[in-house]
Design a protein around this nucleic acid. Structure first.
Lengths: 212, 212
DNA sequence: CGTCTTATTGAAATGAGTCAACCTCCGTGG
DNA sequence: CCACGGAGGTTGACTCATTTCAATAAGACG
């Protein structure tokens, strides 16, 4: 959920941040539990999700290095988070953070900018979630991952599971599977292994993924 | 997109805010244009939307009195806004706002809280947009309007058009029509006129609308 | 009062969900 | 090192809700 902080800001936070290392598939915090800390991903990957009443799970965001998460509402976390891969996070007590905000208005503004940016991402996500077919959603998802990883290489790492992708895109895992298969069949994207995607036909891919 | 500011905060902003009156269906600002001001709705209603490449339009949010909009990214607005009804807005130059933030860290924090809250709303919206049938989406939409209007009365004003509702819920306008018709047929909600809804069977309605 | 936009309704088609079977990968322990 | 077992992934057949297309009706506005 967000943009990276500058190194200067990370340093500024470093004094109060504690570094925590987590294995894969480990819970960082649970929804509705008291919010004591804010986190910043240093390395690895985290997913933010919500368990729905029908037993299903909705993935709200994947969090990459530099992303902030754990900003609470009314002192409680509003969603659950879990590591996807082994992950290192900065953990910042909320009290200390608000203290810093009082002195460092600039840093606070950065957080505001960051949250604003996350809001945009969520709105973009809303667009993806409707009025787009399964293969277009998958294409946009791949494009998003590509962007997040910075490199413009046609090779994309897919650390998360197919079911998590489905839960993020609002599709059944079967539909995701079929969309992957179709992209592959059409020669647009190849999948050398389960966790790697490679864009073959860039123009076709862009046309699909540039729907929003 | 958001929560209301306290009166004190509105007063604090009043010194630099200019009041603008707009007729209905008038553009407030266009996506990608330089962002000079932030707006707060004083009275009326505004929609935030994005025009998609396929010529369609996606409504991202409806803005009510107290809501803030126009927080930009990279100095440019990221979506377009247009009044739905005749509207009065406070218009605040961004430069002046950031100046105030430097002196009033508390106010800045309020903005942060507000944007965080909007992010939650957007995420909730994401859940509504998938895995929910058309009538459930419409029911949740009506419940949202009811909440925003404050009153717990069973009478709900629908200032926006059916097509805008459709664009907000990620449905075709025909599906919205059918969902309304079905709710009416089932005796759950009545529609005395195009722009008024009245909840008849509260328990049934709540069961539908409380899906998320 | 007429015209233009917006809303409703019907019939048909499309695409995603579900259920169920099968396969593949990976970690585990023999 | 290989065999096993289980979780996650793929594929097919079927169902059903929503979209689309098309025609009609109702509001809004001059």
């Amino acid at each position: 959920m967000g943009q990276i902080l500058t190194e200067k800001q990370q340093a500024s936070l470093g004094s109060i941040a504690r570094e925590v290392s987590l294995q894969r598939k480990v819970s960082v915090y649970e929804a509705d539990s008291p919010a004591h800390s804010v986190f910043i991903v240093k390395a690895g990957m985290v997913k933010a999700f919500q368990d729905l009443s029908n037993g299903r799970q909705r993935v709200l965001a994947f969090l990459f290095p530099g992303d902030v998460f754990g900003l609470a509402e009314d002192g409680r976390y509003v969603n659950s988070t879990q590591t996807v891969t082994p992950t290192v996070c900065f953990k910042i007590p909320i009290d200390a953070l608000t203290d810093i905000f009082l002195r460092d208005s600039e840093l606070e503004l950065q957080f505001l900018v960051k949250v604003t940016h996350e809001l945009r991402e969520a709105q973009r996500q809303q667009i993806i979630l409707t009025r787009l077919g399964a293969r277009a959603r998958v294409a946009m998802f791949l494009r998003m991952l590509q962007r997040r990883h910075g490199n413009e290489s046609s090779r994309i790492e897919l650390a998360m599971s197919r079911t998590d992708i489905a839960r993020y895109l609002g599709l059944s895992s079967e539909s995701v599977s079929r969309a992957f298969a179709r992209l592959s069949r059409e020669g647009i994207v190849a999948f050398p292994s389960l966790h790697v995607a490679e864009i073959i036909n860039r123009s076709q891919f862009d046309r699909l993924a540039r729907a929003a």
